[in-house]
Design a protein around this nucleic acid. Sequence first.
DNA 1: TGTTCGAGTTAATGGCCGTTAACCTCATTT
DNA 2: AAATGAGGTTAACGGCCATTAACTCGAACA
Lengths: 205, 205
Amino acid sequence: MSNAHVPAPTSRREQILKEAARLFAERGFHGVGVDEIGAAVGISGPGLYRHFAGKDAMLAELLVGISERLLEGGRMRIAEGGESPEAVLHALIDGHIDFALDDRPLITVHDRELDRLREADRKRVRQLQRQYVELWVEVVRECYPACTESEARSAVHAVFGLLNSTPHLSPRASLPPRAATEALLKRLALGAFAAAADRERMPAE
Amino acid sequence: MSNAHVPAPTSRREQILKEAARLFAERGFHGVGVDEIGAAVGISGPGLYRHFAGKDAMLAELLVGISERLLEGGRMRIAEGGESPEAVLHALIDGHIDFALDDRPLITVHDRELDRLREADRKRVRQLQRQYVELWVEVVRECYPACTESEARSAVHAVFGLLNSTPHLSPRASLPPRAATEALLKRLALGAFAAAADRERMPAE
DNA sequence: TGTTCGAGTTAATGGCCGTTAACCTCATTT
DNA sequence: AAATGAGGTTAACGGCCATTAACTCGAACA
C-alpha cells in the first residue's frame, strides 16, 4: 500500500548515504562524526538512527552496494558480449572509468575503510571484489593468451589502481573536460594491458 | 658527547616509526591506539611520549619523511642523468617500484591519512609530492613530446596509482618472486606512458 | 658516593563521540 | 476526533583513548 506519493526520486536514506560517502572520503570513517553527517542532510545528530542502525551500518551499506554494482555492471557487459574479447575488455574499461568518475567518493572509501566492517560484511565485500577481479582476469587472458594467470591478475589489480587514481586529480582546479580524461585513462589502461602481454621488451634497463 | 655506545643501528625512534607505519597501514590512524604502538615495540602506552610529542607527531614524521625520500631519490636519479630521457624514466620507475615494494605500509599510509596532519605539515607534504610529480612530468614530456603537459601530469598520477597498487596484491598467499613483480610493474608503467603519447589509437569504441 | 638524567611505569584526567532515552509533532488512518 | 507511527529534537550516559602527573630505576658521571 502507498506507492503513489513517495516524496522524491531520492529518498532520505539515499541522501544520507551520498553525504556520508562524501564525508568519509574526505576525512575518513573515524574522522567524521554522526552530527556532521546529520548536519549535511539538514537533520542533526541522532536523527540518523531512524534510518540506520548505526554509523557502521552506513559504511557497510556503502561498501557492499558499490561492490555489488561494480560486479553486476561487469557481468552485464560480459553477457552482452561484444564481437571479440577485445570489445568486451573495452566495455569493462569504459564501465569502470564511468564509475570512477561518477562516484569518486565511493571509490575512495572503497579500499580505504574495508577493515572497519564487521567480519561478515567484510567477507562479503571481499568476495564480491574477488569475483569482479576474476571477471577481468578471464577477459584479459582471452585477449592476451601469452599472459600467465598470475600476471593477468596482478595487471588487473594494477590497472584498477590506475583507473581509481582519479580522486587524486580532482583537487586540481580547472580539470580537463571529462571526455578527454575518459579517453586518456582508457588509452593508459589498454597500453598497460598490452605491455603486460609481450614479455620481450626493454633490455631491462 | 656520548657517541660511541649507542645501543643499535636502529634507534628506538626508528623502531617506533616502523611499527607505527605498519599499524597505521593495517587499521588506519584513528584505528590504532598509542597503547598498541607501544606494545609493538615492547614498551607500553605513554612511554612513547619520551620519544614523540604525540601521536600526530609520529604520523607527521612518517609522511614528511617518505615524501622527502621519494623526492630526493627522484632528484638523484635525474642528476645522475642517463644517456637518454628514456634511461632516466626507466630509473625513476625502478626507484619508485623499489620503494613501493620495500615500504608497502608507508605507501599505504601516504595517501590515506594526509588530512589528519596539522595544516603546516600537510602543506609541506603536498608541496613535496607536487615537486616529485613535476620531476616525472618533465621527464615524460622529454620522452614523449607529443604529450601535452596536462596529459603528462594525469598519466603520471595514474601510473603512481598503478605502481602503488602493490599493497593490494600482498594479502594473496604465495606471491610471485619479487623480481618478476618488479619486471611486470615496469612493463605496465612503460606501456601506459607509451599509450598516453600516441593519441591515434583504438576507434574509440 | 652521590647526583643527574634518560627511559619507563601505572594511575588519573578530560574530551570526544556513538548511542540511547524521553519527549514532541505532524500526517495519515479509522 | 482519537490513535498511531514516522521522523525529529535535545539531553544524558558511557566508553574509549590521547595526554599528563607522579613516581621509579638503573646507568653514566663527577
